[in-house]
């Protein structure tokens, strides 16, 4: 569901500290008809200009909290942080250098586990302008 929309066109930009870029971010919305706990995320894979973003560099920001992406996949991650329907989830990539301002070709793969339908994997490919 929402395969064309899961990769948001909002808030794609480099992230900065003390006048220096240390990473970049993009936002994702859910590929389902309702919200799910973050622990039901099965996969967020981003490929930018043909190169896959290392999972280790990815951090998930949700309602004022930040989680290292590999942690939300672990089998003891809490079940009560809900990623609501239509709510943007910010993925921050801490690569130490940001992203070159301008248009980049992005391919997002999002997998979520649901109660009564098999895990759904959605792919959204589009050009995003990073600020």
């Amino acid at each position: 569901m929402y395969n064309k929309q899961i990769l948001s066109e909002n808030n794609a930009r480099s992230v900065w500290a003390h006048g220096e870029k240390y990473g970049y971010q993009f936002q994702v919305t859910i590929n389902y008809y309702r919200g799910l706990p973050l622990c039901c995320v099965d996969q967020i894979t981003m490929v930018i200009d043909g190169e896959q973003v290392p999972y280790d560099e990815m951090y998930i920001q949700h309602r004022g909290r930040e989680y290292h992406y590999p942690d939300i996949l672990k089998d003891d991650f809490p079940t009560d942080f809900y990623w609501l329907f239509g709510e943007p989830l910010t993925v921050v990539v801490k690569n130490g250098k940001g992203i070159e301002q301008g248009i980049h070709h992005c391919k997002l793969t999002l997998g979520t586990r649901r109660s009564y339908t098999p895990t759904m994997v959605s792919v959204c490919e589009k050009d995003l302008t990073f600020a």
């Binding site: 706990p37 622990c39 099965d42 003891d76 586990r113 109660s115």
Partner: peptide, 13 residues
Amino acid sequence: HFSDRAMWHDKQL
């Protein structure tokens, strides 16, 4: 009500 049993990749409620 939803029955989100498959909360984790390798473990279920």
